[in-house]
């Protein structure tokens, strides 16, 4: 649906990282983890297109979004003050699948940079359906450039998740990529997760899908892509998915990240 949402708060939570809180009760009713919103950041003609943002959290009748200032769209968004209204479309796309049967074993969430945003919403939903008596502690791995850019760490811990950090410069936790951290943890502790959920930059998801395919771990990835319409009409944000193997050659078909995704089974994506 398309609606005007009132901005309740729009604050910087780390250098260049912002959290915006929007009052939009109708969208709250329908939103699922992994889905996103298309936001018009200005009433003017520039920048021209809407911007897609995944949902980070739902609290009451509010939707929270985490974003990083990347270009003129997000810069304008960061200047919008509480009390103003934003034209938003959503919730859009197919989110993560998190049926109880998938949640029986250990679940690992792997976030790269801003990829933490939709995984936090998912973590809350998993907690709701997870057997309260289960002693298996779920794990969150968060990768960032530096310690300052690690988001949601305390919030995940409060929800009962074990959290490990990887930073490129080693300023916090493991020095290296979040995928290297995952590999180390799978080997060192012999972890056999029932499922991995991941979101982050494309190279990270590619490395992760190679790793999880080798170990035959069910993995869902949420892809980021520039979008024009966000509702499946323009075919501007496609990803290659494997179809069938014919004569050793992998056939592919294009699927829309906005409408058929943004969450896909990592084994199906042609990286």
């Amino acid at each position: 649906m398309q609606t005007k949402a009132k901005v309740i708060k729009n604050i910087e939570v780390a250098p260049k990282y912002y959290r915006i809180i929007l009052f939009c009760p109708q969208i709250v009713k329908e939103a699922l983890p992994g889905q996103f919103l298309e936001i018009k950041v200005t009433e003017k003609i520039e920048p021209f297109l809407r911007r897609p943002f995944s949902i980070n959290r739902i609290s009451g009748k509010h939707i929270e979004i985490l974003y990083e200032i990347k270009g003129k769209g997000t810069r304008l968004l960061s200047r919008i003050r509480a009390g103003n209204y934003l034209d938003i479309i959503g919730p859009l796309g197919n989110g993560f699948s998190y049926q109880p049967k998938l949640s029986q074993g250990k679940i690992i969430l792997v976030a790269g940079g801003m990829g933490v945003a939709p995984l936090f919403f998912l973590a809350g939903k998993i907690k709701e359906i997870k057997n309260q008596k289960s002693k298996i502690k779920n794990l969150v791995l968060i990768g960032a450039k530096t310690k300052k850019q690690v988001l949601c760490e305390q919030e995940f811990k409060k929800m009962g998740y074990e959290v490990r950090i990887a930073t490129d410069d080693g300023s916090g936790g493991f020095k290296g990529t979040v995928t290297e951290l995952l590999k180390k943890m799978l080997s060192d502790f012999g972890l056999r997760p029932s499922i991995i959920y991941a979101c982050g930059p494309r190279p990270m998801l590619k490395a992760l899908s190679v790793l999880s395919a080798r170990r035959n771990i069910n993995t869902q990835v949420s892809l980021e892509e520039h979008m024009a319409c966000g509702i499946g009409a323009c075919l501007g944000c496609v990803v290659k998915l494997k179809t069938q193997k014919s004569k050793g050659k992998i056939d592919f078909e294009y699927r829309r990240v906005c409408k058929d995704g943004p969450v896909f089974d990592a084994r199906e994506v042609v990286w």
Binding site: F48, A228, L235, C237, V238, Y254
Partner: peptide, 23 residues
Amino acid sequence: RPGNPMPRTCETPAGMLNSIGLE
């Protein structure tokens, strides 16, 4: 028609470019 490779669109001043390739 499968259409063209990605990226297929980009934003420009007061508009956008596309090369979907008639998927």
